[in-house]
């Protein structure tokens, strides 16, 4: 049972903002899906609600 949350990221190079579900404790190199930059800022959760996923991984 893995806990995943929907998180918001912003690329500090091109400004692209996107959401991705993130598994708790995951250790992953991030790059912008648009420009491939690694300057990915994790935006603080505001209205994004945590969701418990039942899917096992």
């Amino acid at each position: 049972m893995a806990t995943t949350t929907l998180e918001t990221f912003r690329c500090m190079m091109c400004g692209h903002e996107y959401q991705e579900s993130v598994e708790k404790g995951e250790d992953k190199e991030r790059s912008c899906p648009k420009c491939r930059s690694n300057s990915i800022r994790h935006l603080k959760k505001k209205a994004v609600s945590d969701q418990r996923s039942a899917k096992t991984t």
Binding site: M12, E29, S37, N38, S39, I40
Partner: peptide, 9 residues
């Protein structure tokens, strides 16, 4: 402006 600081691997 935070984008003045960049990170690359």
């Amino acid at each position: 402006r935070p984008e003045r600081l960049q990170l690359e691997w």
